[in-house]
Design a protein around this nucleic acid. Structure first.
Length: 806
RNA sequence: GCGCACGUGGCGCAACUGGCAGACGCGCCGGACUUAGAAUCCGGUGGGAGACCUUGCAGGUUCAAAUCCUGUCGUGCGCACCA
């Protein structure tokens, strides 16, 4: 088959008959199938796109044939750093390069033959989209969920912009790998922490990979503990946060983060110089070093003391950079006997180690960090674990010196970016009115075209006079605009809400439509977004729900991550390794169907693995082989009675239907294709028979085309026509298994003696256990092994095996 | 360092809740058709002469373990002083 012409033939036909457009009339049967949209940083689709979209489309087509009205949109996550960096290198404007990339990619996506509903396409860099991204910002601002503050932020010196916590990986910029430094800047944040608890508890009911849920749980990092107030000799007080209030009698020192204001305030004259020097050296230490747990701990005694509220003991106050100012209270109590870090610190600086917890069963080796029994803890002696924690927390609460406290590691989401290619933040600064949101009617705040975007650490927009100068929307005075743009993750935090109502000019979406179309039923995309996009999108959904726009809690009911296709050498594809496999080369040689089929057959979908040229050949061979047998069936003659051969083929057919249906539901594409191959093999076997039932054979051929349709859509559509059937194969119902065809009159049992397989036995279904016993024991292969021995146990696993223990 | 996955023929990968390990394919071997090759079709293919042995390694639970438990080694991913 000439795949090239066949593919373009059907793509045109699908386009013309609007085969892939969602029909709103059938909204009650909707199935919202979504793949993460494309980022147009390169000009072409890479293998990752194919691997994400191809199999996911097969799933969508399967759902469609099952009778769902499938909505599968596609668009472009078009703002972002790579386009801008590319522009800096080549002097080509990001808008121009992005638009060109989108054009090429869109063309390629169409050639893939996926059933994307292009009528709902969105591009986040277009005014009619980012207008609503700005609207989202204003809504969050209105609700107090967007705020501006000065804070130490992550700064990438190479990208010349700030980064969200989630975009820092191992202390380096997620994009370019440059070590991130801390900078004090006034920036916009989204108050995602307001939703920490719900973002955590909502995970339980989601059909998501456990690993992804776990990553989000860890990222949110809930810990339940106690805040305890210490009073200094000076009369100042500070609180520490601990998850181990049961160890409070073991405190031998307390530590403040070097940034803590009390460090300077309380430093004694003798220690002042040392303290100042320590603060300075900490400030210089870069973030990666400071956060490394492997690094030896350092600290300095500030020359002042505080009082332990439970026993009145005077303990020294230290400053040490292993305590983070940004978490909890920025201060901790040092309990060397029951915390590894404190133990190491105390040993280094000669601080006392006081055991207050003992191992319940056996010797207590310090540091002992597990739950245990309180000792040396006055009235709490003998209490264990949670009981002890509760009792001591209650005691502290009564004293007015503490309270139960829940802390999260999750920080608010920093959304300002000192870059050009993004949605401008719709805020105006007025000398009289202060921070003023741009009125909704004035949206969008347009991103100007003529801007110097060479990075120098300042926002490019700040250098654009006609953009910056405006009038205050409240008082009309001369005012300036916010020069930063929004993190591109803001754009992608709500795009799935836009698709169902993509051309709405009055609102980001019509809640009535969106509440019917969402949540997304199946979301497919890379695992790298676990703690970024997938968390942010959940936050947006919950915030919009609380504003009354949405009536659901979670955007993505069910989520699947595709694996990664590696180079043929088993390494990640990269230019430097020279192991990049370009889809185009193969698609032009074999066609889209073969390419997609190989991606489904050659890998476990969620695992991925190394590319193989031989593998793709096998996919091509399979389609050729399929075509030949379909033509054989079409030409078949004969009126043989329905007999044993027919029964066998019918079994394979229905078995394939049953298992393919199950496998597709599980995204188990490789095994589904294997069942198709078995079916084709069985068709060949039947074709070899002298006598054939032609009508039955043709019926089998029809089913084969239907079964194959989601996997090789163009090929199947063509063969459906060749077999003389009516367009379109995708309007046909997917075959349903006839269970009666799977009923056999007898089943093969493996017969074991003492758990070792000795023989196999055909046993008629419905045979009673007593009879089976007699049958097995009298079998020629078994009799000599059991004769003269006592049968201690006789185990029957229905339809599988018999185990005789002698 | 901590957490989570994974480890199966020469290769890619299968094996639903513990129940015949190696489905399906690649490769390889053989046969048919061809002057010959390619393509195609058919058959074989974990190891061992054998009883038997085989799911990284060592133990354990069980009538029965790739699957469950403990330890260990290796690979990948995530978090990295979060008190």
């Amino acid at each position: 088959m000439d795949m090239k012409s066949v593919e373009s033939k059907w793509q045109q036909r699908w386009e013309k008959t609007k085969e892939n457009c969602f029909n709103k009339k059938n909204i009650d049967k909707k199935f919202y199938m979504l793949e993460m949209f494309s980022y147009p940083s390169g000009a072409k689709l890479h293998i990752g796109h194919w691997y994400n979209y191809g199999p996911a489309d097969s799933y969508a087509r399967f759902k469609r044939m099952q009778g769902y009205e499938v909505f599968q949109p596609m668009g472009f996550d078009a703002f972002g750093l790579p386009a801008e960096n590319y522009a800096i290198k080549t002097k080509i404007h990001p808008k121009d390069s992005t638009e060109k990339n989108i054009e090429t990619m869109e063309h390629q996506l169409r050639a893939m033959g996926a059933m994307f509903d292009w009528s709902a396409e969105i591009k986040t860099c277009e005014e009619d989209y980012y207008k609503w991204t700005q609207w989202m910002f204003l809504k969050l601002f209105e609700k107090g969920l967007a705020y501006r503050k000065e804070a130490p932020v992550n700064w990438c010196p190479s990208c010349n912009t700030v980064l969200a916590n989630e975009q820092v990986q191992e202390g380096c910029c997620e994009r370019c790998g440059t070590p991130v430094i801390k900078k004090d800047l006034t920036q916009w944040f989204f108050k995602i922490t307001d939703y920490a608890e719900e973002l955590l508890s909502g995970l339980d009911k989601l059909d998501w990979p456990e690993k992804t849920k776990l990553m989000q749980r860890n990222w949110i990092g809930k810990s339940v503990g106690c805040e305890i107030e210490f009073t200094c000799e000076s009369g100042d007080t500070f609180k520490v946060f601990t998850t181990r209030p049961d160890t409070v009698f073991g405190v031998s020192y307390v530590v403040l983060a070097p940034e803590h204001p009390l460090v300077r305030k309380l430093a004694s004259d003798e220690q002042r110089a040392a303290v100042e020097a320590y603060i300075e050296s900490t400030a210089k230490t870069d973030e990666i070093d400071r956060l490394s747990s492997a690094r030896e701990k350092t600290g300095v005694f500030i020359g002042h003391y505080a009082v332990n509220p439970v026993n009145g003991e005077k303990v020294p106050i230290w400053a040490a950079d292993y305590v983070l100012y940004s978490y909890g209270t920025g201060a901790v109590m040092g309990v060397p006997a029951h915390d590894e870090r404190d133990f190491a610190f105390a040993n280094k600086y000669g601080l006392p180690v006081k055991k207050v917890i003992e191992n319940r069963n056996g010797e207590t080796v310090l540091p002992f960090c597990e739950d245990g029994i309180c000792v040396n803890s006055l009235q709490f002696d003998g209490k264990f674990g949670d009981d002890a924690r509760t009792a001591i927390t209650n005691h502290l609460t009564k004293l007015g010196k503490g309270a139960r406290k829940v802390n999260y590691r999750l920080r608010d989401w920093l959304v300002s970016r000192q870059r050009y290619w993004g949605a401008p933040i719709p805020i105006v600064y007025c000398p009289h009115c202060g921070t003023v949101p741009v009125p909704y009617k004035d949206l969008p705040v347009k991103l100007p075209y003529n801007v110097q975007f060479e990075p120098d650490g300042k926002s490019p927009l700040a250098k654009c006079e006609e953009f910056m100068h405006t009038k205050c929307p409240v008082c009309g005075a001369d005012a300036v605009r916010e020069a930063d743009t929004l993190d591109t993750f803001v754009c992608s935090s709500w795009y799935f809400l836009r698709y169902p109502d993509a051309h709405n000019a009055k609102a980001p979406f019509d809640p009535e439509i969106v509440n019917k179309m969402l949540p997304v039923d199946k979301y497919v995309g890379g695992a790298e977004h676990a703690c970024m996009h997938l968390l942010y999108a959940r936050f947006f959904t919950k915030a919009l729900r609380d504003m009354g726009y949405l009536n659901f809690d979670e955007p993505f009911t069910s989520l699947v991550h595709q694996g990664v296709i590696l180079g043929p050498d088993g390494n990640r594809m990269s230019k430097s390794k020279g192991n990049i496999v370009s889809p185009d080369d193969y698609v032009s040689e074999y066609g889209s169907d073969v390419f997609r089929l190989y991606l489904m057959f050659g890998f476990s979908y969620t695992e991925g693995g190394p590319w193989s040229d031989d593998g793709i050949k096998s996919a091509a061979k399979f389609l050729d082989r399929t075509e030949r047998i379909l033509l054989r069936a079409k030409e078949a003659q004969g009126t043989a009675a329905h007999g044993e051969e027919e029964r066998k083929l019918n079994f394979v057919r229905n078995n394939a239907i049953k298992l393919i249906t199950r496998d597709l539901e599980n995204f188990s594409f490789n095994t589904a294709v294997a069942r198709l191959m078995e079916y084709v093999n069985a068709m060949y076997k039947y074709d070899g028979c002298e006598e054939k039932d032609a009508a039955f054979f043709k019926e089998c051929a029809n089913d084969l085309v239907l079964l194959l349709a989601p996997f090789a859509p163009h090929f199947a559509e063509e063969m459906w026509e060749v077999l003389g059937k009516k367009y379109s194969v995708f309007d046909q119902p997917y075959p349903v298994c006839d269970e009666s065809a799977l009923v056999q009159e007898s089943t093969e049992y493996a017969v074991q003696v003492n758990s070792k397989i000795k023989t196999k036995l055909m046993i008629p279904n419905g045979t009673a256990e007593e009879e089976m016993r007699a049958l097995a024991l009298s079998d020629d292969a078994i009799r000599p092994l059991v004769e003269g021995k006592t049968v201690k146990k006789f185990i029957v696993v229905p339809n599988r095996l018999i185990n005789i223990i002698v």
